[in-house]
Amino acid sequence: MQAVTSNWQQVYNFLNQNMRNTGINYKLTSKILLASEEIFVNIASYAYPKSLGNVNIKYDYNPNDFKVGIQFIDEGTPFDPTSFLNFNTSKDISERRIGGLGIFMVKKTMDTMEYFYESGKNNLIISKIINSEVLSYGNK
């Protein structure tokens, strides 16, 4: 799909439906959606500064490794968000800056965040360990 912020609703529906099918509870679904939105918006905002481009999003759940993973692939400007400095949450409001908040939230909400650049493509995979507790009841 095209990497534009107006497509977030489509991504939201795709991921929400997949997590619902997996049986992931509302609390964890919210966290994963939160992290996914930050990454998607980042790609939509910065990956293609001069033209429109695409982003592919893959959802993967393997019950054998108890992990849900979401992969974002784009052909935009190489950018490794895992190398981004930590966001300082103790700063006073007057010193607060807008940038970096999203990536910080991804790091806080997900268990792993892996990045690699291959064949002209940014690959970012975020994953979360799934235990039986989060699969024990239905979504809202």
């Binding site: 939105e37 409001i93 939230m105």
Partner: peptide, 13 residues
């Protein structure tokens, strides 16, 4: 409100 991302936080900030 069932969900809020950093976009909401930015607006509040």
């Amino acid at each position: 409100v069932e969900y809020m991302s950093s976009a909401g936080l930015r607006t509040i900030l």
